[in-house]
Simulated assay, not measured.
Amino acid sequence: MARIPNYPQSLLDEHAEWHSNMNMNVRPGDGLEFLRFHRNFLRKSLRWYSAQGLDASSVEPWSAVPAEIKMHPGWNSSLQEAENRIATNLSSFRSSDELGRFLLTSSLHDAVHVFGADVYGDPDFGQVPSAPRSTLFYNWHRLIDRWWRELQRIRRTKNRRRRAR
């Protein structure tokens, strides 16, 4: 819940530019692009973060959407159902692209940014141009990346079983 000191403008610009070029009508392929961009962006940003000697525990992934965010007046049953599907039924997603598109079209991704900014008093987290200079950005996007890694593991296991038959 803190602003990262001296966060590079070049990384803020990269994140903002990617989002400004994103089509608002989510199409096949956009979900995978969303996941890939953010995974690569996390690597780059966290490499910089580590080189600064900053506290790594501040940017650890959440284990789930925090209860404080779920207590926000805007949190609703649709958002809870979206999180539940990901947290308890990842295998229902047929691909990484489907997971990424679901995060975008269910409003879960955006709601966590907006409600988290409000709940934690961190306006950076709720704004695309400044979100990466908030530690909350890493908590949230590293949870998303954890979900994606788990889905990739599930898909690999299913593919191995299919080939073994």
Rank of each mutant, 00 (worst) to 15 (best):
A56F: 05
S92W: 06
Y49A: 07
E81P: 00
A51S: 15
S77F: 07
Y49F: 15
G126M: 03
R36M: 13
R161Q: 13
S58A: 13
D55C: 07
P66Y: 12
N23M: 04
N89S: 09
D13H: 10
M71F: 06
P123K: 12
R3M: 08
S10M: 07
I69L: 06
R142W: 02
P66Q: 13
S95I: 06
I4C: 12
W148L: 02
F115S: 05
W48T: 12
R133Q: 15
R39G: 02
P129V: 11
D30W: 01
T88C: 14
V128F: 12
N84A: 12
P73K: 13
D55S: 10
R43V: 09
A111C: 10
G31D: 00
R146C: 09
F137S: 11
R153G: 08
W140C: 02
N6I: 04
S106Y: 01
V59L: 06
R36N: 15
F41S: 09
E33N: 13
S58E: 15
A16L: 08
P8V: 09
G121W: 06
A111G: 02
P73R: 13
V112H: 01
L99Q: 03
P73D: 09
V65A: 00
I86G: 00
F115I: 05
S134E: 11
A64K: 11
Y49K: 03
S130F: 13
K158A: 10
E81H: 08
N21H: 14
R156T: 09
R149I: 02
F37V: 04
R156L: 08
P8G: 12
W75Y: 10
A164K: 12
S58K: 14
E17D: 14
M22T: 05
V114H: 04
E33L: 07
E17K: 15
R155Q: 14
M24C: 06
V65P: 00
P8K: 10
V59P: 00
R149A: 14
N139F: 00
N84V: 09
D122R: 01
W140F: 14
A87M: 08
P28F: 05
G31E: 01
F102C: 04
S130K: 10
R94M: 10
M71Q: 15
N139P: 00
V65E: 00
V59Q: 04
P73T: 07
W140E: 05
Q52F: 06
R142P: 02
L35T: 01
E98Q: 15
S50T: 14
D55Y: 09
S106N: 04
L136S: 08
Q152A: 10
F137A: 09
E14T: 12
A117T: 05
N25K: 11
S78K: 12
F41D: 11
E14R: 15
F37C: 06
L108C: 12
D13M: 08
P132K: 03
Y120E: 03
R85Q: 13
Y7A: 11
E14G: 06
R133I: 09
Y120S: 03
H113I: 02
A82W: 01
K158L: 09
H72R: 04
A164F: 07
A82R: 01
M1H: 10
P73A: 14
H109E: 12
